[in-house]
Design a protein around this nucleic acid. Sequence first.
DNA 1: GAGATATAATTAGGAACCTAACTATATAGG
DNA 2: CCTATATAGTTAGGTTCCTAATTATATCTC
Lengths: 181, 181
Amino acid sequence: MNNNRKINDMEAIPSLVQSQRQINRYNLDMDAQAILVASRLMAAGAQLGQASEIHFSRFGLSTGRYRVLADLEDNEGEELPSQLAEHLGVTRATVTGLIDILERDGLVSRRLSSKDGRQRSVILTEEGAKKLREMAPEHFAWLEATVGLLSIDERSVFLDLLGRVTQGISALTEEPGSKPK
Amino acid sequence: MNNNRKINDMEAIPSLVQSQRQINRYNLDMDAQAILVASRLMAAGAQLGQASEIHFSRFGLSTGRYRVLADLEDNEGEELPSQLAEHLGVTRATVTGLIDILERDGLVSRRLSSKDGRQRSVILTEEGAKKLREMAPEHFAWLEATVGLLSIDERSVFLDLLGRVTQGISALTEEPGSKPK
DNA sequence: GAGATATAATTAGGAACCTAACTATATAGG
DNA sequence: CCTATATAGTTAGGTTCCTAATTATATCTC
């Protein structure tokens, strides 16, 4: 009896009842479903992030390091660390760390810029390009599978809604002290 | 001075053109939009996760530590670490770390179980309950604001689609037979 | 020019979560 | 019993990404 090991893996996912209960507890006037949607989105984001790291570890990469390689490939195989940071939405310090490992593994190389002594170009090596080629089929199949349960039309809708949620989050992070509605 | 990095850099958001270009490069037969949706979802998840940490840091908490407090409150203020781990979807090792800090800050306390010598109950202290009360209005307003750009109906649709994507990810992470290192 | 300021990249250290190994306790098989 | 195994929680160490400070170079102002 003390051994109530639950079959309920669903416990990790917040329910509407739980959201409503939390709102009621403090007599707040809020839409419980809005709270639920936000909570679920956060849970989904965390889950996808973890799944992504596992996925890329099969290729000896991390999510961040893959994104560096892919972004380099999208830019003729050469970029500045600051450009990578901007494209990936991470700090330059993070890019330095990502490149350190990619360089150690021979997938990129660093080169001094002639134009500006402060800059260092990051170059996609042939080995890096080969890595991308080799993993492409499996990687894209994985990406496609994450949305495989949605129809084409539903994907469009989802993309639209997700875009607006992203906007909402952006607005929140840009105005730290402001008051919503 | 306000050198805050914007989490929502437009450059960080993958475009359909970019997705199609990647697919074409390797002559893969895939739906570029599916790739785009998956990529955007990952970006949104990461963005929301970062925004969440910033949000909770205003209350001296992290996302994980808040979730511990909230889950305790939803369970009469007392739970086992293993229950918390299951509810939060994190490992027991992570729960140990979360509780260490919450206990240090006086928001929870640990108590030995009389039933089973291996168990330790985690208790929400009065100070912990007070913290939840104090932050509730601002916190729920923040949560609601993240989906504030969606109508009520759209939130329902989004919730449904998100649920199926989550299912898809679960299926992916459970199935692959290859052994992790 | 010379000093102040801005910018590119790096370094140092921190926070969150993970896996794997460890400790202590409980339970099951012979 | 008493050894073998399972379980609860913790510890140790790794990964990812962060902020803040540092180093080197460029640019603006006087």
